[in-house]
Simulated scan of single mutants.
Amino acid sequence: MVDQFVMLALILIKLVLVFAVVLSMAAYLVLAERKILARMQLRYGPNRAGPGGMIQPMADLIKLLTKEDFIPATADRGLFLIAPGLSALTALLTFAVIPFGPTLEIFDQKLPLVICDLNIGLLYFLALSSLAGYGLALGGWASNSKYSLLGSIRGLSQLISYELAMGLSVVPVVMMAKSFSLTAIVMAQETIPFALLNPPAFLIFLISIFAESKRIPFDLPEAENELVGGFHTEYSGMRFGLFFVGEYINLVILSSMLTVLFLGGWHGPWLPGIVWFMVKVLAICFFFIWVRGSLPRLRYDQLMNFGWKVLMPLALLNVLVTGAILLGMG
């Protein structure tokens, strides 16, 4: 009974710590992005709130909480209020299956550094990434605005198109690891990461998560010069902020998944496993920011053509080639 109580307490502590770290990373990624982009564009970023602007996320939170929560008169009130929370909730739930370190021994108990080590963790991630589109779609539709509706339609078609390529890109990973468990996938990369064993799958997954995160050059659902603000045009206050909380949590999630599936997870020399995991995740987040500061937005027809006519055939071909090679080796 005591052992069960200790294990339950450790799981709850782990849950609180992981969510606190993820939310803090999301808040400070906003600041990091603003500072890095400012340096790339030869200007200053936020530097007034605290030393070097370090408490700018807190200032932004206070600003969003104190702004008026405006609801359009013709909006579908229930769906309009629920939509922003869906985006943030689905992003947070995804982190439950991501392993961020090896198993630790605490109080004679083996504590895996993952909230819930599902044997179908990869399928869980794919299912929740599909549900994330509902917040975007409902927010745009419930606003009863042409700009918002166009943004949500763009977002849904983009997510559907690139989720297919993303799903196919992880099939070779499952073939090589012989498991849907994310922990087993990391363990299978103890000697060499799958990014080196299967570079086409890595590149397809990388491009697909750019589209999944709706970031430049794939930020067509927002496209402020075409749609004012896209699916969140009619939102204000903290509900507007929740869409961006979900976006930056999703950025951490997708960077973590890329690390787990293709970059060896926590494996690395000299440093503790959890440190290696964080270094890899932050490096990928920096790459996302770097791309945003370097590339222009694609046209919508270019976005869809690239997804269906280039990524999909390549992903299918890669599955066939990987299967044939593994069959030949086996």
Rank of each mutant, 00 (worst) to 15 (best):
A315Y: 05
V228K: 13
D219V: 02
L220P: 00
K63M: 06
G237R: 03
D3E: 15
K146M: 08
A32R: 08
F180Y: 14
F125W: 11
S255Q: 09
N305I: 07
P217Q: 01
M278N: 12
G121T: 06
F125V: 15
I325Q: 07
L254S: 06
M257S: 03
A20K: 04
Q4Y: 06
P51K: 14
S87G: 08
E163G: 07
F107G: 07
F288N: 03
D301I: 02
A142K: 07
F95R: 02
A283T: 03
D108W: 12
P72S: 09
I207F: 14
F125E: 03
P112N: 11
Q56Y: 03
E105Y: 08
M312V: 15
V170A: 04
A73Y: 09
S208P: 03
A32N: 09
L320T: 08
T74V: 04
F288C: 05
M187Y: 02
G323V: 01
S236V: 09
I106Q: 14
T233E: 09
S294A: 14
P72T: 08
F80D: 05
H232S: 10
V97P: 01
G50H: 10
M40A: 04
P172G: 07
S236C: 07
F288Q: 04
G323L: 09
L86D: 01
W276K: 05
P296V: 06
I153D: 01
I216V: 15
I62A: 15
F277G: 08
L86S: 03
S169V: 03
G52F: 15
L197K: 13
I284N: 00
Y235A: 11
I55Q: 07
G167S: 04
E224F: 04
G121K: 06
P217H: 00
N305H: 09
L111N: 10
T103E: 13
S145Q: 03
S24K: 01
V174H: 01
L251A: 13
M7H: 11
S87K: 02
S130D: 00
F286Y: 12
L122W: 05
E190P: 00
L15F: 15
L298M: 15
Y147Q: 09
P200V: 07
L136S: 04
I106R: 11
G246H: 10
L15M: 14
T191V: 06
G230T: 09
V171D: 00
F306R: 02
G268N: 07
I11N: 09
I325V: 15
N144G: 00
L282T: 08
D117Q: 13
S145A: 06
Q158C: 05
L159V: 13
E222M: 07
S157L: 15
A177R: 03
G50M: 10
L136R: 04
A38Y: 02
A83Q: 02
M1R: 10
S255N: 09
K214R: 11
L64K: 04
A83R: 05
H232Q: 10
L42V: 14
F306M: 14
L317W: 05
M176K: 08
Y134A: 13
N198A: 12
I253E: 00
L197Y: 08
